[in-house]
Amino acid sequence: MKRVTLFDYGAGNLHSLGKALAETGYEVRIETDPRRATETDLLVLPGVGAFQLAAERLAPAREEVRTALADGLPTIGICLGMQLLFDESEEGKGRGLGVIPGRVERIRSPRVPHIGWNSVEPSGEKAFARAGLDVAYYAHSFVCRPEDESVVTAWTTEAEDRFPAAVRAGNVAGVQFHPEKSSREGVTFLAEMVREALR
């Protein structure tokens, strides 16, 4: 049976995400060792904690993880997990995986963090329409600025800032919002992403 692995940085709530992933019927494993986390059919980088601490957790195995992703390991990064796909972040020291060229910068909004339900405007990813997900739950202060905007598969806007709600580069996908906190439509969206990745 195909296996989904949830990488655990050691901070935050993985229960809802684990449960949402388990609804797909695949075996879900939680792994704290980044090297072993890549021995899977689908890697999920969850979205809790601070950039620097998560980058430190990944650092000893950064090259192996990066190579696995570059070689086509299906991956879904959520919130901070999406930001870790990029090169670096204004939030803190440390290197991201750098599989999508670009930086992570502070959101340009009068109210930070950006917390609450905001739009998802798809530009390519079919899972959004299939799940009926057009508004999702966000909780973050930093946003991804890819060098090449063609990686963006959905956008959202807060105040004057339009930023990626989702990105994809080959088998590597990222979402800035929390599908596991975006009610039934979010859980369905996540299941669509997982099924697509493991097809």
Partner: peptide, 27 residues
Amino acid sequence: AERLFVPLTIGGGIRTADDVGRALRAG
């Protein structure tokens, strides 16, 4: 957390960052 798919906040009696960590870890 295993049944609810909107955000959950817990308040009351939280004293330290370790308490925060435990609450987050729990769900």
